[in-house]
């Protein structure tokens, strides 16, 4: 909370981005305390990782300091305080925190905890709810990511293919030899870890989304160390774009297969003779789809921003 207030106060945008990162990490810790390990994992990788990187790239493009003038501070304070007070009043009869007898704990939740193991046979209940019970939400989520990717692409596009500059600006850490060596050593394990997270989602925290983010992080790291052009040699961006689509379609086609087999959309029990192993296959494939899309979109988004940074740098020269 103090961090949040600090964000509000600090005028140096760079500092506030850092604070946002810290804030995210703190909330991740909070989520762990609240038993939401999956969520914490995601919040850490997204809030502290991806969004920080994106904000930093934006700031390199736009300038670091904000205009200190404030609009309507007094009105804002009054309005916010009044609303806050009203809302706190509104919490008065909320179910008590941690109470096992609240409707949330007694109505639908127990079904997942009690039945999911026999129905799906996956220990991580979050995964089974995510990928199977509410698989359609997750499908939607994948599409949201995809849509965001499309949006960023349409706004920023790939930068035009320029002749190779020796040192790309978007490789800010190129000069640090040690970092490069360490990076080279680190990247393969990160990729491996990503794959582990991808396929271990059934048993522990993790799954397609987190894996995708980590995977993308590895590639982003590579780019930072070796420059965008080098990275683009390793991965072709138009292919990445296709991959983003393929991820969504993989998810969708799992659903389609199930209803070609006469079951409802995303009913994984149609995938194999045995309903439970069908669920297994289904979750695996679906998580893979999510992972692919997330990786691809994250890379695309990062490259779009990085491309702009490069372009601006070139213009400045």
């Amino acid at each position: 909370m103090a961090t949040a207030i600090a964000i509000a106060r600090v005028k140096d945008l760079f500092a506030s981005v850092m604070l946002t990162g810290i804030y995210s990490l703190l909330s991740a810790v909070f989520f762990v305390l609240m038993d939401a390990v999956d969520v914490a994992f995601t919040e850490a990788s997204v809030g502290a990782g991806i969004s920080t990187i994106l904000m930093l790239s934006t700031l390199t493009l736009t300038g670091q300091y904000e205009d200190p003038t404030r609009h309507k501070t007094r009105t804002a304070l009054v309005v916010v305080l009044v609303t806050g007070a009203l809302l706190i009043f509104g919490t008065a009869d909320m179910p008590r925190f941690g109470d096992p007898q609240t409707p949330v704990q007694t109505h639908v939740g127990p079904h997942y905890l009690e039945k999911s193991y026999e129905e799906i046979h996956v220990p991580n209940v979050v995964t089974s709810v995510l990928a199977s019970y509410r698989g359609f939400d997750t499908f939607g989520e994948t599409v949201v990511i995809f849509a965001a990717g499309i949006g960023v692409l349409s706004l920023l596009g790939f930068s035009g293919r320029k002749e190779k500059t020796t040192i790309s600006v978007s490789a800010p850490m190129y000069q640090h030899r040690i970092l490069r060596v360490v990076g080279k050593v680190l990247i393969p394990p990160i990729l491996l870890f990503a794959l582990y997270v991808q396929f271990h989602g059934d048993f522990g925290p993790g799954g397609g989304f987190q894996a995708g983010v980590i995977f993308a992080a590895a590639i982003i790291l590579y780019t930072m160390l070796f420059g965008r052009q080098a990275a683009e040699e390793v991965i072709k961006l138009s292919w990445v774009r296709l991959l983003a689509a393929v991820g969504v379609m993989l998810y969708g086609s799992v659903g389609l297969i199930s209803f070609l087999n006469g079951k409802n959309f995303l009913d994984y029990s149609a995938l194999a003779a045995d309903a439970v192993s069908g669920q297994h296959y289904g979750i695996l494939l679906v998580e893979l789809g999510v992972g692919i899309t997330v990786t691809a979109v994250m890379i695309l988004v990062f490259f779009s921003f990085a491309g702009r940074v490069d372009k601006k740098a070139e213009e400045n020269e």
């Binding site: 309507k72 309005v79 609303t83």
Partner: peptide, 18 residues
């Protein structure tokens, strides 16, 4: 500006709550 819009949102919310 979006500030104004957000103020309106908040005001309306509090009006409902009140």
């Amino acid at each position: 500006p979006s500030s104004t819009m957000v103020i309106w949102v908040t005001v309306l919310l509090s009006v409902y709550l009140i």
